[in-house]
Write a protein that binds this DNA or RNA. Structure first.
Lengths: 121, 121
DNA sequence: CATTATAGTATATGACGCACACTATTGTAA
DNA sequence: TTACAATAGTGTGCGTCATATACTATAATG
């Protein structure tokens, strides 16, 4: 049985992850990867992604022109390889800059100039 | 006229911000604040929040038990002051931990082993 | 006292990504 | 062939965020 705090954490954490999955995926696609391998390799690096989340994401990004895809049927099983497009590279770079900005802003409000939690104000 | 890359950036950035607003808000509520003051003070610190975003957020968080509110009618205009509840403090602390985890994971995939972008591997 | 401007609070609406629970297909081992 | 793992895909529901809008009360002005 979960505490109240933890119950809400689930949703909150999910929202927190939003958008970051996109960066994670884009970051891996300087070299071609297919869906299943992305799930695995991102999971290894501490970024859990559900297949049901990743596949739609990949198709979205492709439709937006950030990714290019290509079926490989030579191998044992047919796999759909995705790769960053030129636009995708631009967007990824910009996104990283944005991301760092957000991290910085948030760090400021989270750690208020060193933390005076002893109350000596 | 925006480039393709920038057009998609808008949405992507918005998604990236999602959830971070919650942390930002919670971080300011160790001391009581009302809606308008939060918009102002967060804006000052680089976190833009629309009033139409903040107010529903505050009510959500209160309904979830993370915040307590109290009308102050003594002052010139009636203002609704929000403050972290005990649960809210717990959740906030956990959220910060989660956030730092996400930042760390993402930093790993964004800067692969310190950035070997000269290709000397 | 009536009117207007402004600070502050509230809500409805729409868009969209994410998780979850499926289904479908293919290859491999039993 | 059957059963299971690998791979890709879809549909639904939920929740947050932005935009626009309305509402209330005070202050200012005539």
């Amino acid at each position: 049985m979960m505490s109240d705090a933890q119950k809400h954490m689930e949703k909150l954490m999910q929202e927190l992850r939003r958008g970051t999955i996109t960066i994670g995926v884009l970051s891996q696609l300087s070299e071609p990867q297919y869906g299943y391998s992305l799930v695995t390799m991102l999971g290894d690096k501490g970024i859990q992604v559900e297949p049901g989340t990743l596949y739609p994401l990949l198709r979205r990004l492709e439709k937006q022109g950030l990714l290019a895809s290509q079926w490989d049927t030579n191998d044992t099983r047919p796999r759909k390889y995705y790769l960053l497009s030129e636009t995708g590279k631009e967007v990824y770079d910009l996104l990283v800059v944005e991301w760092k900005g957000i991290v910085e802003s948030l760090n400021h409000v989270i750690n208020p100039k060193g933390g005076n939690e002893d109350g000596t104000d």
